[in-house]
Design a protein around this nucleic acid. Structure first.
Lengths: 193, 193
DNA sequence: ATTATTTCTTAAGGTAGATTAAGGGTGTTA
DNA sequence: TAACACCCTTAATCTACCTTAAGAAATAAT
């Protein structure tokens, strides 16, 4: 059952009472998505928060020249949404797209507020979750400033071993902020040395 | 009184009872800091979370060549800490330094946990606060990928009007991820055009 | 199985931004 | 009033990474 992965994940932060678990389960809707399907398209409002049960997603923006820039990946046991758009209900500039056939649990804004209002623990769990994500992002900013593309590539391989064999290099290049051609050169240089 | 700025800030998220306010006030310690004084030095553990009452701080890392990279500024009504180090109590790689004579309210780890455990609302307030910071950081990552240094400089001036006349350009350059010399060229080009 | 689509690679030429070096401005402390 | 520390600017040279192009390899769709 898909929902059990979610409950397990939440209880890794704080244990929950059966009554709370039931209440949480009620708010989530399981959904199967095909490769390349978008959970969010730029220009729309992000109406749902997603928990990834299986598969893999990327979140990306498109610049004025039409180039795509990956700002994060999300796979098993991770959460994904444009939280800026989700909480403000303003249109999003971002896209969320499946890189593999995937399964998610979706919770709409009202459902999540229901939980925030009625299960105080949920606020704390989400606080801690977003803190982790904030730290991850902060490390990324620092790394982008203080290392070369090659160093960042090596760091990516170390930090996301569960992704390195699942993603095409073109997606990795976009995440690193370089072109696929330059990533190809980096890989060649690493092979040669 | 310094603490009133904090209470006002917290109540902009959720109203608090007098009893809760008293309990919060108890945990914070006011502190005056001189220009260039460090609230956190790389290699130490981040033992406190800081609310900035007045003045201005920068948080920065130092790379292997000795160059400093600003990852955020914090001024009035903002919070600052290396939250990774603060929550894990592991040594920090970051520094927090006053750019002006400043006043802060400091809360130690145990004091903050006291509040998280006894005032459920505080979890929600901190959740929302960090969500805002996450969105800001995410926008920064996207912007760094999809625009030139000149565009980023213009965006910085727009986004942080309260900082642009308070910071030396050398600090702004470090935040933008460029050298002071190149920022100088950008400013000249903008002047000429 | 075959085609269609996406992905990977190599290489030549180009550009944003770094580096180095040097001179001038401004404010702070003695 | 000097001396010091810090900051800003200009300009020449250099480099990490981009652009364009084009063929080969791998994957997905029919």
């Amino acid at each position: 059952m898909k929902v059990s992965a979610l409950i397990l994940h939440l209880e890794s932060f704080i244990p929950l009472k059966q009554e709370e678990k039931d209440r949480i389960e009620e708010q989530f809707v399981p959904q199967t998505v095909k490769r390349k399907h978008k959970l969010l398209t730029a220009g729309e409002v992000c109406k749902d928060y997603f928990f990834v049960v299986s598969g893999c997603f990327r979140m990306f923006g498109v610049d004025d020249k039409g180039f795509e820039h990956n700002i994060q990946f999300a796979s098993e046991k991770d959460w994904i949404a444009d939280i800026g758009s989700f909480y403000s209900q303003k249109t999003s500039q971002l896209n969320i797209e499946a890189l593999e056939p995937s399964e998610v649990l979706r919770i709409p804004q009202l459902g999540l507020y229901e939980l925030f209002n009625n299960i105080p623990k949920i606020n704390r769990i989400f606080k801690v979750m977003i803190e982790y994500k904030y730290i991850e992002l902060q490390n990324r900013v620092l790394q982008n400033f203080s290392s070369t593309a090659e160093q960042r590539y090596l760091a990516f391989l170390e930090q996301y071993p569960h992704l390195k064999n699942r993603l095409p290099n073109t997606q990795v290049a976009s995440y690193l902020g370089i072109t696929p051609e330059f990533l190809s050169k980096i890989r060649k240089d690493l092979r040669d040395s």
